[in-house]
Design a protein around this nucleic acid. Structure first.
Lengths: 208, 208, 208, 208
DNA sequence: TATGAATGAGCGTTCATTCAT
DNA sequence: CATGAATGAACGCTCATTCAT
């Protein structure tokens, strides 16, 4: 029933350097407008104008409006993903659950410090139909393996990890949106860690 | 820099039963379109057509498009709020933290079972500029008072409650969006309770 | 090619006193809106609202929007006409051309002092298609008779009177629009009289 | 209290010949509709349709409806102004007041012969809020200097010139509207000259 | 390849007027 | 009669996208 998602493959890859600049200008212009004026005012004409390129040039590199924000999201993800991936690699080397969680949470927070405004705009402004959801299952599996030794009394760890990720992300994202300065404070990381720590190393349920 | 929020006061109240039906038809049509096609395709013409009323009738009761979804949200909140309010009243009577949390989480889950699709649409589809954010501070304060006795080693309980609410809501909302059936399973409530329980009754931080 | 002028006969005569009040309220509301917001914003709904009557009541007394302003103009003309008519009666009694002209011009000026804003609105705001043009020919004939003795070297007095009326009216109207206070100054009347006096009692054209 | 005047700057200038044609077609279509159907029926859709261009093309060059008639007036004034300017230059060379006035009045009449229908439409149909008023003060000053030698018994020449201009314009305009053929007759110019001549070279006021 | 010009489809909104109670 | 409710027809304007140099 929902409108079919549009094809968002870039129309052609920019080969020459000049073209690369054009594409950059377009995505940056789109980011600017999205952040400052929202999705509703992100029109292709406005993007082209702000980017200083002709509207027809824009359509030479992007088949439609959605493709522009798809590219924007792709770039944003590329920029941010690495933090968490790096942390995942270092994870097995940690000695305690708490250390592991600190590493993870810090990575997630760092992610959000890169371009908080763009991040917020992507999450809050884009309608679902154009938002790229990241497939998390690989990560979930990696985390499950790494955290298994520490998890106690957790009936289904995979589920718990998904829940933990959602919760942690929501808290960090909320902070980013409302008061990005909070991300800099170490207590903030501590709180998120506390949330996850208690959840994974949970006490045995008292018998009824 | 963002566009100013539009006035969303209803233009005039329906007095006769006939017009009450009209207004109902409009909000329901809006809900239907929002749920099934998203904000982008929620046009006043489409709403009027689906509601089976003339576009001008729509504008007799709503000054603009935003006002329609404002009303929709108002009605949804009205339907929804009571669950949690009720739970808050019963809260002090609970004997243990776990009991208290079960009560709370169950209420939040129940909230989401009322009209999960509408709820999802409101949260996920509406651009921030038209979304009614609920002021939570009263609730936060109530919760703080009720949960104070149980909270251990929590440096700032008010902050912790805000974080807990965000986390719980995100988890429940995510479940609602992706698989509403999950809300029916008691294990789901248990998991969310576990998340909050461990967070509030957290172990003392080990000395470094 | 122009749109046919609409019928503007009042739909039914208000018999009862209450109805008379309704009609008054409507014309006054129309005048208010016309003066303060212009013809473009003179909508029947706005008139009804300002008049405090139901839109359907309005349509019981007026067949359409044009009829309202027609009535407004009729009333305005009724109020103002008398001044000039009175002057025309007194005209033959004047001894000199100048005295006659002073009488006339003063009457025209007085006309404009009655409701200058309404007058301006009627003349400046109403599109030609709804403006009631007054038929002047009777007046022209009366004036011709009265002024004949004084007119010298005027090839066609009837034409001259028409021209004089147009000129005098334009000057007075311009003053009314831009600076109504000017109407109060006796020098203003003198100037208009001078304009007409020189025109009617013109010197013989020098032979070529 | 009145609605603010809208911005009427053209949105972008046509660079290629093709678009120059488009803009011309638009203004001409607007003139046609204004002349034949009036301001009320001058809708942007109608203009675009008559011009044979897409409504969006219209909006590429004009930000709104008002801007179209602003351009129309600008063009009309450009076409028209020169006549009087030319006359003003030749004015000091005239030997007599009558010669000077003939020159002036003839120029004003010529002005009205250029596009009498458009002229009438602009003056009579446009609501005040979209009409470009020409600033006359420069002209008034020029005329004052040129006519000073001839003016007798005129208490305030500047005022007299303003009054004379208003009167002459009204008479010529009235003729243009009701019977443009009149403009061709030399007697018409003579009459208007007579009006002004007697006013400026007025006899001394008889002592009372 | 890049640019200026063009456009179909549609959106939010208003208004004069009529219907039904 | 008076009122609340309803409505068809349009209007001003925008936007994603394509055409033509």
């Amino acid at each position: 029933m929902r409108a079919a998602r549009k094809a968002t493959e870039p129309r052609k890859l920019p080969r020459q350097q000049r073209s690369q600049l054009t594409v950059d200008a377009i995505t940056q212009a789109a980011a600017y407008i999205l952040v400052n004026f929202g999705w509703e005012r992100l029109t292709t004409n406005a993007v082209a104008e702000r980017a200083g390129v002709n509207i027809s040039s824009l359509y030479q590199y992007f088949p439609n409006k959605e493709a522009i924000v798809a590219e924007l999201q792709r770039r944003h993800i590329l920029q941010t993903q690495s933090k968490l991936a790096q942390a995942l690699v270092q994870l097995p080397a940690q000695r305690t659950l708490r250390e592991a969680l600190v590493l993870l949470v810090q990575a997630m927070v760092d992610e959000h410090r890169i371009a908080p405004a763009v991040h917020r705009a992507i999450v809050d402004e884009l309608p679902r139909s154009v938002r790229c959801e990241i497939d998390n299952e690989d990560r979930v599996e990696q985390l499950r393996k790494a955290l298994e030794p520490y998890a106690r009394h957790v009936p289904d760890l995979r589920v718990a990890i998904r829940i933990g990720l959602v919760a942690a992300h929501a808290v960090i994202h909320e902070a980013t949106s409302h008061d990005p300065a909070v991300l800099e404070r170490p207590q903030f990381v501590d709180e998120v860690v506390a949330l996850l720590y208690g959840y994974l190393r949970r006490p045995r349920l008292a018998a009824p």
